[in-house]
Design a binder for these strands. Sequence first.
DNA 1: GTAGCTTTAAACAATA
DNA 2: ATATTGTTTAAAGCTA
Length: 321
Amino acid sequence: MENSSHTLPLSCPSPATIRGPLPLSSSPQHTSSNGRISLPLSPISFPPSPASFSPATAESVHSCSPLSHFTVSHCLEGQSLADQDDLTCLNWLHQRGDLLPLQPLTKMTLLPQQEPSVASQLLPAASSKPPYSFSSLIFMAIEDSPQKRLPVKDIYEWIVNNFPYYRTATGGWRNSVRHNLSLSKSFRRIQRDKSQSVGKGSLWCVCPEYRPALLEVLRKTHSYHSNNSNLLHKPAPLCLLTPDHEELVTMESVEYQQEEVCEDMEKDPLSDSGYIELHYYESQQYQYLVLPDDTELDLETVEILQLDAEAQEAAGSLLDL
DNA sequence: GTAGCTTTAAACAATA
DNA sequence: ATATTGTTTAAAGCTA
Protein backbone atom coordinates (compact mmCIF):
# COMPACT_ATOMS: atom_id res chain seq x y z
CA MET A 1 0.00 0.00 0.00
CA GLU A 2 1.09 3.50 -0.39
CA ASN A 3 2.73 5.10 2.51
CA SER A 4 -0.19 7.31 3.25
CA SER A 5 -0.22 8.77 6.67
CA HIS A 6 -2.87 8.65 9.28
CA THR A 7 -2.75 10.78 12.30
CA LEU A 8 -4.50 10.19 15.51
CA PRO A 9 -7.83 11.88 15.76
CA LEU A 10 -6.43 14.42 18.06
CA SER A 11 -5.53 18.00 17.76
CA CYS A 12 -2.17 19.01 18.94
CA PRO A 13 -1.00 22.54 19.38
CA SER A 14 2.65 21.69 19.18
CA PRO A 15 3.02 18.20 17.92
CA ALA A 16 6.14 16.24 18.28
CA THR A 17 6.77 13.95 15.42
CA ILE A 18 7.30 10.30 15.96
CA ARG A 19 8.98 8.56 13.15
CA GLY A 20 10.00 5.09 12.32
CA PRO A 21 10.48 2.35 14.82
CA LEU A 22 9.91 2.85 18.45
CA PRO A 23 12.79 1.58 20.48
CA LEU A 24 11.92 -0.20 23.63
CA SER A 25 12.66 1.64 26.72
CA SER A 26 12.58 1.15 30.41
CA SER A 27 11.21 4.60 30.65
CA PRO A 28 7.73 5.20 29.41
CA GLN A 29 8.97 7.32 26.64
CA HIS A 30 12.13 8.69 25.31
CA THR A 31 12.32 12.02 23.63
CA SER A 32 15.46 12.56 21.70
CA SER A 33 17.11 15.84 21.03
CA ASN A 34 15.39 16.14 17.71
CA GLY A 35 12.05 15.87 19.34
CA ARG A 36 11.30 12.36 18.30
CA ILE A 37 9.50 10.24 20.78
CA SER A 38 9.89 6.58 21.37
CA LEU A 39 7.10 4.51 22.74
CA PRO A 40 7.93 1.32 24.50
CA LEU A 41 6.36 -1.77 23.12
CA SER A 42 6.29 -5.28 24.27
CA PRO A 43 8.65 -8.10 23.63
CA ILE A 44 7.32 -10.35 20.97
CA SER A 45 4.69 -12.64 22.23
CA PHE A 46 2.21 -13.41 19.53
CA PRO A 47 -0.16 -14.83 20.12
CA PRO A 48 -0.36 -14.73 23.87
CA SER A 49 -0.75 -18.03 25.51
CA PRO A 50 -4.16 -18.71 26.97
CA ALA A 51 -2.58 -18.94 30.36
CA SER A 52 -1.23 -15.45 30.14
CA PHE A 53 -4.35 -14.11 28.61
CA SER A 54 -5.61 -11.34 30.79
CA PRO A 55 -8.96 -10.05 29.67
CA ALA A 56 -9.20 -7.74 32.59
CA THR A 57 -6.59 -5.53 31.09
CA ALA A 58 -8.92 -4.68 28.30
CA GLU A 59 -10.90 -2.60 30.72
CA SER A 60 -9.78 0.68 29.39
CA VAL A 61 -10.07 -0.29 25.77
CA HIS A 62 -13.44 -1.85 25.78
CA SER A 63 -14.76 0.55 23.25
CA CYS A 64 -12.00 -0.02 20.82
CA SER A 65 -13.19 -1.84 17.82
CA PRO A 66 -11.62 -5.18 17.18
CA LEU A 67 -11.34 -3.96 13.66
CA SER A 68 -8.76 -1.56 14.83
CA HIS A 69 -6.52 -4.48 15.56
CA PHE A 70 -6.69 -5.55 12.03
CA THR A 71 -3.43 -4.08 11.03
CA VAL A 72 -1.59 -5.50 13.95
CA SER A 73 -2.55 -9.03 13.31
CA HIS A 74 -2.21 -8.60 9.62
CA CYS A 75 1.39 -7.70 9.61
CA LEU A 76 2.24 -10.50 11.87
CA GLU A 77 0.26 -13.06 10.08
CA GLY A 78 1.80 -12.37 6.74
CA GLN A 79 -1.37 -12.53 4.83
CA SER A 80 -1.60 -11.72 1.21
CA LEU A 81 -2.71 -8.39 -0.03
CA ALA A 82 -5.73 -10.00 -1.52
CA ASP A 83 -6.67 -11.36 1.86
CA GLN A 84 -6.30 -8.05 3.47
CA ASP A 85 -8.25 -6.20 0.91
CA ASP A 86 -11.08 -8.49 1.51
CA LEU A 87 -13.14 -6.68 4.05
CA THR A 88 -15.15 -9.76 4.67
CA CYS A 89 -12.05 -11.50 5.87
CA LEU A 90 -12.22 -11.93 9.59
CA ASN A 91 -8.86 -13.44 10.09
CA TRP A 92 -8.11 -10.60 12.40
CA LEU A 93 -10.61 -12.12 14.72
CA HIS A 94 -8.59 -15.24 14.93
CA GLN A 95 -5.73 -13.41 16.45
CA ARG A 96 -7.41 -13.96 19.69
CA GLY A 97 -4.90 -12.18 21.77
CA ASP A 98 -4.92 -9.24 19.47
CA LEU A 99 -8.58 -8.73 19.39
CA LEU A 100 -9.05 -6.74 22.50
CA PRO A 101 -7.45 -8.22 25.50
CA LEU A 102 -4.13 -6.86 26.42
CA GLN A 103 -1.42 -8.29 28.46
CA PRO A 104 -0.89 -6.59 31.76
CA LEU A 105 2.16 -4.47 32.01
CA THR A 106 4.34 -5.59 34.80
CA LYS A 107 6.60 -2.64 34.62
CA MET A 108 5.37 0.77 33.79
CA THR A 109 6.13 4.03 35.37
CA LEU A 110 4.01 7.05 35.19
CA LEU A 111 5.33 10.03 33.45
CA PRO A 112 6.72 12.31 36.08
CA GLN A 113 4.81 15.28 34.82
CA GLN A 114 1.57 13.40 34.75
CA GLU A 115 -0.70 13.67 37.72
CA PRO A 116 -2.88 10.67 38.49
CA SER A 117 -5.90 12.88 38.70
CA VAL A 118 -5.32 13.89 35.15
CA ALA A 119 -4.90 10.30 34.22
CA SER A 120 -8.26 9.45 35.59
CA GLN A 121 -9.72 12.24 33.56
CA LEU A 122 -8.10 11.16 30.37
CA LEU A 123 -8.82 7.50 30.59
CA PRO A 124 -12.21 6.11 29.80
CA ALA A 125 -14.30 4.93 32.65
CA ALA A 126 -13.46 1.40 33.57
CA SER A 127 -15.95 -1.27 32.70
CA SER A 128 -18.24 0.95 30.75
CA LYS A 129 -20.40 -0.78 28.27
CA PRO A 130 -18.95 -1.80 24.94
CA PRO A 131 -20.54 -0.20 21.88
CA TYR A 132 -21.34 -3.47 20.21
CA SER A 133 -24.75 -4.99 20.02
CA PHE A 134 -25.24 -8.50 21.29
CA SER A 135 -25.51 -9.65 17.73
CA SER A 136 -22.09 -8.25 17.02
CA LEU A 137 -20.65 -9.75 20.14
CA ILE A 138 -22.04 -13.15 19.30
CA PHE A 139 -20.86 -12.79 15.76
CA MET A 140 -17.34 -11.95 16.86
CA ALA A 141 -17.29 -14.79 19.32
CA ILE A 142 -18.37 -17.34 16.77
CA GLU A 143 -16.04 -16.00 14.12
CA ASP A 144 -13.21 -16.17 16.56
CA SER A 145 -13.73 -19.84 17.17
CA PRO A 146 -11.75 -22.39 15.18
CA GLN A 147 -14.82 -24.28 14.08
CA LYS A 148 -16.94 -21.18 13.55
CA ARG A 149 -19.45 -22.58 15.96
CA LEU A 150 -19.79 -22.26 19.68
CA PRO A 151 -22.06 -23.39 22.47
CA VAL A 152 -23.73 -20.59 24.31
CA LYS A 153 -21.49 -21.11 27.28
CA ASP A 154 -18.42 -20.43 25.19
CA ILE A 155 -20.06 -17.36 23.73
CA TYR A 156 -20.52 -16.06 27.25
CA GLU A 157 -16.93 -16.84 27.98
CA TRP A 158 -15.64 -15.10 24.90
CA ILE A 159 -17.63 -11.99 25.70
CA VAL A 160 -16.44 -11.90 29.27
CA ASN A 161 -12.86 -12.46 28.22
CA ASN A 162 -12.92 -9.75 25.64
CA PHE A 163 -15.21 -7.26 27.27
CA PRO A 164 -14.63 -7.20 31.00
CA TYR A 165 -17.66 -5.03 31.40
CA TYR A 166 -19.63 -8.24 31.30
CA ARG A 167 -17.53 -9.80 33.98
CA THR A 168 -19.16 -7.63 36.56
CA ALA A 169 -22.42 -6.97 34.78
CA THR A 170 -25.52 -8.54 36.18
CA GLY A 171 -26.61 -11.81 34.69
CA GLY A 172 -29.28 -10.35 32.50
CA TRP A 173 -26.94 -9.98 29.57
CA ARG A 174 -26.69 -13.75 29.26
CA ASN A 175 -30.40 -13.83 28.88
CA SER A 176 -30.00 -11.23 26.18
CA VAL A 177 -27.42 -13.33 24.42
CA ARG A 178 -29.72 -16.33 24.39
CA HIS A 179 -32.59 -14.14 23.37
CA ASN A 180 -30.53 -12.84 20.50
CA LEU A 181 -29.45 -16.27 19.40
CA SER A 182 -32.98 -17.50 19.36
CA LEU A 183 -34.54 -14.48 17.77
CA SER A 184 -31.95 -13.37 15.29
CA LYS A 185 -32.01 -14.88 11.85
CA SER A 186 -28.30 -14.35 11.72
CA PHE A 187 -27.57 -17.31 13.91
CA ARG A 188 -28.37 -20.90 13.46
CA ARG A 189 -28.47 -23.69 15.95
CA ILE A 190 -26.65 -26.90 15.16
CA GLN A 191 -27.07 -30.14 16.98
CA ARG A 192 -23.91 -31.32 18.61
CA ASP A 193 -22.34 -34.54 17.60
CA LYS A 194 -23.69 -36.71 20.36
CA SER A 195 -20.74 -39.05 20.17
CA GLN A 196 -18.30 -36.30 21.06
CA SER A 197 -20.63 -34.05 22.90
CA VAL A 198 -19.54 -32.72 26.22
CA GLY A 199 -21.85 -30.35 27.96
CA LYS A 200 -25.37 -29.47 27.19
CA GLY A 201 -26.99 -27.38 24.56
CA SER A 202 -26.42 -26.88 20.89
CA LEU A 203 -23.73 -25.21 18.90
CA TRP A 204 -24.42 -21.89 17.29
CA CYS A 205 -23.06 -20.66 14.02
CA VAL A 206 -23.45 -17.64 11.78
CA CYS A 207 -25.74 -18.00 8.82
CA PRO A 208 -23.57 -17.31 5.80
CA GLU A 209 -26.20 -15.20 4.15
CA TYR A 210 -26.28 -12.84 7.10
CA ARG A 211 -22.57 -12.64 7.56
CA PRO A 212 -22.09 -9.62 5.28
CA ALA A 213 -24.76 -7.75 7.17
CA LEU A 214 -23.15 -8.56 10.48
CA LEU A 215 -19.83 -7.40 9.15
CA GLU A 216 -21.37 -4.20 7.98
CA VAL A 217 -22.87 -3.53 11.38
CA LEU A 218 -19.52 -4.16 12.95
CA ARG A 219 -17.85 -1.86 10.50
CA LYS A 220 -20.38 0.86 11.08
CA THR A 221 -19.98 0.59 14.81
CA HIS A 222 -16.28 0.90 14.35
CA SER A 223 -16.68 3.87 12.07
CA TYR A 224 -19.16 5.59 14.32
CA HIS A 225 -16.94 5.33 17.32
CA SER A 226 -13.92 6.45 15.38
CA ASN A 227 -15.65 9.51 14.08
CA ASN A 228 -16.97 10.42 17.47
CA SER A 229 -13.71 9.93 19.17
CA ASN A 230 -12.05 12.30 21.51
CA LEU A 231 -9.36 12.21 24.10
CA LEU A 232 -11.60 11.12 26.87
CA HIS A 233 -13.59 8.41 25.24
CA LYS A 234 -11.76 7.12 22.28
CA PRO A 235 -8.68 5.19 23.17
CA ALA A 236 -8.47 3.40 19.87
CA PRO A 237 -4.86 4.21 19.24
CA LEU A 238 -4.12 2.93 22.68
CA CYS A 239 -5.41 -0.44 21.75
CA LEU A 240 -3.22 -0.53 18.77
CA LEU A 241 -0.20 0.48 20.60
CA THR A 242 -0.54 -1.83 23.50
CA PRO A 243 -1.41 -5.27 22.29
CA ASP A 244 -0.02 -8.11 24.17
CA HIS A 245 2.19 -6.33 26.61
CA GLU A 246 4.05 -8.41 29.05
CA GLU A 247 6.69 -6.19 30.32
CA LEU A 248 8.89 -3.41 29.32
CA VAL A 249 12.50 -4.06 28.78
CA THR A 250 15.66 -2.20 29.32
CA MET A 251 16.16 0.81 27.18
CA GLU A 252 18.11 0.00 24.14
CA SER A 253 17.85 2.26 21.19
CA VAL A 254 17.59 0.39 17.97
CA GLU A 255 18.16 1.95 14.66
CA TYR A 256 15.42 1.55 12.19
CA GLN A 257 16.29 -0.88 9.48
CA GLN A 258 13.95 -0.81 6.58
CA GLU A 259 14.70 -4.36 5.54
CA GLU A 260 13.43 -5.66 8.82
CA VAL A 261 9.99 -4.34 8.29
CA CYS A 262 7.53 -7.07 7.89
CA GLU A 263 7.33 -7.88 4.22
CA ASP A 264 3.66 -8.38 4.43
CA MET A 265 2.97 -5.00 5.80
CA GLU A 266 -0.12 -4.19 3.94
CA LYS A 267 -3.02 -1.89 3.68
CA ASP A 268 -5.29 -1.38 6.56
CA PRO A 269 -8.74 -1.71 5.09
CA LEU A 270 -9.91 0.79 7.63
CA SER A 271 -7.14 3.17 6.92
CA ASP A 272 -9.50 5.97 6.18
CA SER A 273 -11.30 5.51 9.42
CA GLY A 274 -9.12 7.93 11.26
CA TYR A 275 -7.10 5.29 12.97
CA ILE A 276 -3.42 5.46 12.81
CA GLU A 277 -1.79 3.07 10.45
CA LEU A 278 0.52 0.71 12.22
CA HIS A 279 3.14 -1.66 11.08
CA TYR A 280 5.35 -3.91 13.04
CA TYR A 281 8.68 -5.34 12.46
CA GLU A 282 10.70 -7.63 14.54
CA SER A 283 14.26 -7.30 15.52
CA GLN A 284 16.01 -9.63 17.88
CA GLN A 285 13.49 -10.52 20.51
CA TYR A 286 11.53 -7.36 20.37
CA GLN A 287 8.75 -5.99 18.39
CA TYR A 288 8.63 -2.48 17.09
CA LEU A 289 5.90 -0.28 15.97
CA VAL A 290 6.47 1.58 12.76
CA LEU A 291 4.52 4.69 12.11
CA PRO A 292 4.30 6.36 8.74
CA ASP A 293 6.87 9.01 8.19
CA ASP A 294 4.54 11.89 8.57
CA THR A 295 2.63 10.54 11.48
CA GLU A 296 2.45 13.01 14.27
CA LEU A 297 1.65 12.39 17.85
CA ASP A 298 1.55 15.11 20.37
CA LEU A 299 3.16 14.71 23.71
CA GLU A 300 -0.14 14.53 25.44
CA THR A 301 -1.15 11.59 23.31
CA VAL A 302 2.01 9.79 24.14
CA GLU A 303 1.39 10.41 27.78
CA ILE A 304 -2.08 9.05 27.45
CA LEU A 305 -0.70 5.95 25.85
CA GLN A 306 1.46 5.38 28.84
CA LEU A 307 -1.28 6.12 31.26
CA ASP A 308 -3.54 3.73 29.54
CA ALA A 309 -0.99 1.02 29.84
CA GLU A 310 -0.61 1.86 33.49
CA ALA A 311 -4.32 1.63 33.99
CA GLN A 312 -4.40 -1.69 32.24
CA GLU A 313 -1.74 -2.98 34.50
CA ALA A 314 -3.62 -1.86 37.55
CA ALA A 315 -6.88 -3.29 36.33
CA GLY A 316 -5.23 -6.54 35.47
CA SER A 317 -3.67 -6.82 38.87
CA LEU A 318 -6.92 -6.20 40.63
CA LEU A 319 -9.07 -8.46 38.57
CA ASP A 320 -6.59 -11.26 38.51
CA LEU A 321 -6.72 -11.55 42.25
C1' DG B 1 -44.59 10.97 15.66
C1' DT B 2 -43.34 6.52 13.76
C1' DA B 3 -41.05 2.25 12.55
C1' DG B 4 -37.47 -0.69 13.26
C1' DC B 5 -33.94 -2.37 16.00
C1' DT B 6 -31.91 -3.42 20.42
C1' DT B 7 -31.92 -4.28 25.19
C1' DT B 8 -33.82 -5.98 29.29
C1' DA B 9 -36.77 -8.71 32.00
C1' DA B 10 -39.52 -12.47 32.77
C1' DA B 11 -41.88 -16.91 32.30
C1' DC B 12 -41.66 -21.41 30.97
C1' DA B 13 -40.16 -25.85 28.95
C1' DA B 14 -36.52 -28.99 27.79
C1' DT B 15 -32.32 -31.04 28.91
C1' DA B 16 -27.80 -32.55 30.98
C1' DA C 1 -33.23 -31.47 42.12
C1' DT C 2 -30.62 -28.16 40.05
C1' DA C 3 -28.48 -25.42 36.68
C1' DT C 4 -28.23 -24.49 32.04
C1' DT C 5 -30.16 -23.86 27.60
C1' DG C 6 -33.61 -22.35 24.39
C1' DT C 7 -38.02 -20.07 23.21
C1' DT C 8 -41.30 -16.64 23.59
C1' DT C 9 -43.58 -12.41 25.02
C1' DA C 10 -43.60 -7.79 26.56
C1' DA C 11 -41.96 -3.33 27.41
C1' DA C 12 -38.72 0.37 27.21
C1' DG C 13 -34.98 2.90 24.98
C1' DC C 14 -32.68 4.53 21.04
C1' DT C 15 -32.05 6.05 16.31
C1' DA C 16 -33.05 7.24 11.57
